[in-house]
Amino acid sequence: MIPAAGYLMVSAALFFIGAAGFVARRNLFTVLMSIELMLNAVNLAFVTFSRQWGQYGGQIIVLLVIAVAAAEAAVALALVVLLFRNKETLDVDVFGQMRE
């Protein structure tokens, strides 16, 4: 049997890969997907702990996170479409209006 630590390390690896992508990439889609990656990493940790302690909370939370991720994806993609139509680009750094 693989101990919980193994799964948690996969989770940590996925999280940091997502974080690296989130910080380094400038493509709107890739940034979004990096976020999804981080979410999934956290989900894996939840499920692992659920298994470790025999509690259902972790699994239920994952189900809720999946639903939230779906909502997030819907809104985020709508925003992406809107931004692309406006600026004709996917470059994250172009969208600096938050500063004003």
Binding site: V23, V31, V92, D93, F95, G96, M98, R99
Partner: peptide
Amino acid sequence: ETGRVRSYGF
């Protein structure tokens, strides 16, 4: 405050 999303993310 740079206004760049990535720097906030960082």
